[in-house]
Design a protein around this nucleic acid. Structure first.
Lengths: 213, 213, 213, 213
DNA sequence: TATGAATGAGACTTCATTCAT
DNA sequence: CATGAATGAAGTCTCATTCAT
């Protein structure tokens, strides 16, 4: 079974000694690596613990179950990203903000493509999604604030548009990740075209940069 | 575990009697329904067999293992779709063909959104992907032939563009499916904007249809 | 943990082939023996399966969890017993019926004292008790019908009296079982004295049988 | 598992400073409360320590293992009780002494019924029983001295009678505890009838107090 | 001495797959 | 061919106990 008892997915205890902090970090990183390598199906708590160099017990000391591990991982990955993403709001124009967001997202997703991909999927599982609702809302709010800017065509349905943008972004970058791409510039350009197109933003300057490859 | 012994994923025998065909169909449909309802995690061969009204043994008579079931399901879903999609090629213009493709894809994905979503994911698992390589190639060829048309800006990298288009398409429609949307028209419009934008097709006629909601 | 998911404790499937019936019987008997020997704490599903000569999987094919095993065992033991106990009702007098009940109970409890003791305890756990409520009620009804007879002093509170009688009976016989006693006659006499005393039945004939040991 | 390594069950050290005494008391009381609330199955050393407001380590400082905790608890409960029970010996008549004993026992058992019940059961586990043999013997000696009095019919087997009396007593009171009874008077009366009946003491005065309820 | 982090054996349970009937 | 009983490897999680700080 994937998930057993329905318990809080929140961390069981917050590490109080520095030794514990290290343990938690090690577990999380091990989980990340296993997820990257073998996917959710190949990930199991014993393996994660082993790779982290701790006993399974330690894992369960901090995470009530496997899903909690995913949640924690999502949050860990999301934290850095969100900070950078929020920076988009200080861009003067909406389109600039969007560009910023794209840049940041692409970089994030490309940092550890396999991990990002795996998490993207897991985050859709209701149990997980539920736990991450808050973070997701915060992120969506950022996007909403961008879409509302003057230089972006008004969108009929804000929520839908937000979802779509995120979905498109992830889709392209995940696909790239799967192919092992790593040319950020090109990727950003492709994503931009799709997103700007979606939003109905026509011609943002005679783009010369379209690299023929 | 996802897959145990490595065996051929091809159906074990081609049913030649109609009774067998019915059995296979029943199993496949049962699998589809379970996949829709409980996701891959909640799907197991015993359950599928039971829902199909046959013994597990019979299931293994026709499918060497669980993955073969997924493959067969993917092919079943893909078959109808591919036929319709290929029809796009008879459209005179590239943009028309693309529209056609979008319409068909949206319809397909919206027919059984949960199933489509689940399969989309499974199809990425290497074992499955490998088995479906041929079908995928055929589909991609269709897209390639569209992209090559005169009224579509030349794409720097054909393979990438194809992948991206499919990814975007799926992403938007999956998101819609998850939200329970069912307005095909609106969906098609959103998808179009993203895809045309991606391809660098600027303003296809002053679009008045953008519904403000 | 003793009990995990809250599921029905009812048997998962009823054996349809005779092979299955044998398996179920073997599992139950193995469980009984383990319970007798090592108590609930020493009983685990793997061991039971092994002793039954089947795989654990088979055990779970018929019993959704460990507790279901206990319930089934209780019912198995209770069934024979109840049939015999109900016979008490055909005794002409209430006191006769009581004697009958005592005889039957003592015999039952002495057949497999350790098992009886262990089950007595387990049957008090709420999860189990709940499942056995019906059987228990039936048994109590028999007692109630006895207590209502003319030659038994009216009891202020029927339910309490019933509970007490059963408790006393079990207590004495369990104690005897623990000591390894097996003189049924003596045991019956001791139980009778306690029960008749409890019910306020004074001198039922000059009892000569009081063995000096 | 119930007990891991076999070690002495005696407290590891006799606390000589009052702080230590307090710690031990806190642990014991925490154990009692957990036992009452969640039964032996729900009791675990980490929880007990936490409830006691100390680290697990401290618990193991004073108790070599979980069973030692039970033993200590049994002794703690037994101590007060034994003192009161011994008072029975100063009663002039045997029957008076017995009454005294009953009163005391009922009070004891009713003080914390759930705890008493749980301990009753644990005390039967060989490992525990063994450790408590001395206390038990002392208590049984008190009963023996009562049974030997002139106004009590001679019992064929002293040890058996003692065991039985205790068993009956516990059985009735435990049952009462389980039902949530708390009418000591009524309970004493019921116990008396059973015990006197068991001992073959016929009519202790025309009892008018039998409350019809 | 106290603390609480760490440990890992072992318990429970599931499910893909096989095979006797 | 069909059936469904049987299997057992593998995964999840708990908790008594130890030990570094």
């Amino acid at each position: 079974m994937t998930t057993n008892r329905r318990q809080s997915l929140k961390p069981r205890k917050i590490p109080q000694q520095s030794r514990a902090e290290q343990t938690v970090a090690a577990i999380l990183e091990a989980a990340a690596r296993v997820l990257e390598t073998k996917g959710m199906d190949g990930m199991n708590t014993n393996l994660v613990a082993q790779r982290a160099g701790v006993g399974v017990g330690s894992l369960y000391q901090y995470f009530p179950n496997k899903d909690a591990l995913i949640v924690a991982l999502s949050k860990r990955e999301g934290a850095v990203f969100f900070a950078e993403a929020a920076g988009a709001l200080s861009e003067p124009t909406g389109q600039g903000a969007l560009k910023h967001l794209i840049t940041v997202s692409v970089r994030q997703q490309l940092r550890r493509p396999a991990l990002a991909r795996a998490l993207d999927f897991e985050e859709n599982r209701p149990v997980i999604a539920n736990e991450l609702a808050a973070s997701k809302a915060a992120f969506h709010e950022v996007i909403r604030q961008i879409l509302v800017r003057k230089d972006i065509p008004p969108q009929p349905n804000m929520e839908t548009a937000t979802d779509d943008l995120v979905a498109i972004l992830r889709a392209i970058v995940d696909a790239a990740g799967e192919r092992g791409e790593s040319d950020r510039r090109d990727l950003e350009s492709r994503v931009s075209r799709a997103l700007f197109g979606y939003l109905g933003i026509v011609d943002r300057q005679p783009e010369k940069s379209r690299t023929r490859k």
